[in-house]
């Protein structure tokens, strides 16, 4: 008997939760705000679903009710991707070590 592919996806999901658990515990508390903004940006990988939805119209009519929702989702996810990564970049650039110790 063959294993349902859903089981494989479920395995990936469960293992990723564990990976996430250990990786996030090792994040230093001072970077918790950038952590939130970067998780925001990467969860917008949902844009792949939005793109498939946006391309679902046929060549005669690009816009149908389903693809319109896709396009809207693309805009939202794109705001998040660019906004999230850039604001993270901006924040991380501010974290500096002591330049020189005068002691």
């Amino acid at each position: 008997m063959e294993i349902d592919p859903l089981i494989f996806r479920l395995s990936i999901f469960i293992l990723s939760i564990f990976v996430g658990y250990y990786v996030v515990w090792s994040v230093t508390p001072s970077l918790h705000t950038p952590l939130m903004s970067v998780t925001n940006a990467i969860s917008s990988v949902i844009i792949v679903g939005a793109i498939i939805a946006g391309l679902s119209g046929n060549s005669d009519s690009v816009f149908n009710i389903s693809s319109i929702f896709g396009f809207l989702a693309i805009v939202l996810a794109a705001i998040n991707i660019f906004g999230g990564f850039l604001v993270t970049q901006r924040m991380l650039a501010m974290y500096k070590k002591k330049k020189k110790d005068k002691k």
Binding site: R9, T39, V45
Partner: peptide
């Protein structure tokens, strides 16, 4: 939410990311 959609679309990137973000938020 992203992971749920990831299962629908059978997309590993979304499933992995959803799980990462989900557990990250839970830990925070």
């Amino acid at each position: 939410a992203a992971a749920g959609i990831g299962f629908t679309l059978e997309n590993t990137a979304l499933i992995i990311t959803g799980a990462l973000v989900g557990s990250s938020g839970a830990i925070l």
